[in-house]
Design a binder for these strands. Structure first.
Lengths: 172, 172
DNA sequence: TTCCAATCGGACGGTTTCGATCCGATTGCC
DNA sequence: GGCAATCGGATCGAAACCGTCCGATTGGAA
């Protein structure tokens, strides 16, 4: 339940790139220097992000990368999937890779699919623009608006949270 | 962004235990046979779950485990944390383990904390009782209704997804 | 009371994946 | 036409994960 260091680096680098502006052309060396990510690793990441279609690459002198689309159109899920592969909490959720020993009669699998969708939805609701914005002012993050609603009536679960730690209290 | 096989096994085993009833005493051998988890691995998991306080263990002949509290009071996050440790998408979210090279001036960290809270909240809202329930009827799970709302217009890739894995197909 | 059998708990090694590095291929500028 | 800067793929070391084995503990039966 923890994303790899590479994905973490990718998020930071993409946020730095977005802060430079969507139209500017950036080299891996520059972003590596800004973010502190080792240069070879940064190059590998940029290449993988470009392969996923999040960046456009240009070779040769003066080449580099730039965001393929606006920061609003790139979600955190996109970045993570570009680096780590499809977001699937369990292998059984990933279609066509059902190595699960329980195979078909697993009682938990349908529930896990829903949970997986919830996690993925949370990640997909966060755009790169939000990540790149400097959080000086605690402005309401609209992408996570469903978080502020109490998980009780309506969209929440009808039972109390076990150890009392809810979603509220995270937002500043 | 994928939980380990051990956590997956733990969820399945806990669901099986909950389906047996909260009061019944269960041995690791029984649950291993039911779930298909290898017995030594099952023993290791049960021990770890007991150490986390989710199960109570009794040694000796006729011993075994049983749920420490009702299935309503155990969340998916509890199980995952018992096996994998604290849920922290990035190391910087986990307090007092700030190995991040960016240290204090990371612009992304506060946003990641919110996202981490969202993921954790999603996992914490799912109780073991829900996981143990047999989903014979595809009843709409109201607790995750926000999933159906599209986070953005055109939430997917506006270009052909690189590895062909899209969002559709996860929800039943 | 003594023995036994069933169970939990900790320690060890094989395997896969991850993370960082190096070198070749390609392209624009001089 | 040469050069320099950059991307892209291949390689290697390391860590974590996963599975297995053996010892410690306890309740029941004789």
């Amino acid at each position: 339940m923890r994303l790899t260091s590479l994905a973490d680096y990718a998020v930071v680098m993409m946020a730095a790139a977005a802060r430079h502006g969507a139209g500017t052309r950036l080299s891996a060396t520059l972003l590596a220097g800004e973010t502190g990510v080792p240069l070879p690793t940064a190059q590998k990441l940029m290449g993988r992000l470009a392969a996923a279609g999040l960046l456009t690459s240009a070779r040769g002198t003066g080449g580099g990368f730039q965001l393929a689309r606006g920061a609003d159109g790139i979600s955190l899920a996109d970045i993570i999937e570009a680096v780590e592969g499809p977001i699937a909490m369990t292998t059984c959720v990933d279609e066509a890779r059902s190595d699960c020993a329980l195979d078909g009669h697993c009682q938990v699998k349908p529930h896990l699919s829903i949970v997986n969708g919830a996690v993925r939805g949370a990640l997909q609701g966060v755009s790169l623009a939000i990540l790149a914005s400097t959080p000086a002012r605690p402005e309401p993050v609209e992408g996570l608006s469903f978080l502020s609603t109490t998980p009780k009536e309506g969209q929440g679960f009808d039972e109390p949270s076990p150890n009392g730690v809810g979603v509220s209290g995270i937002l500043p």
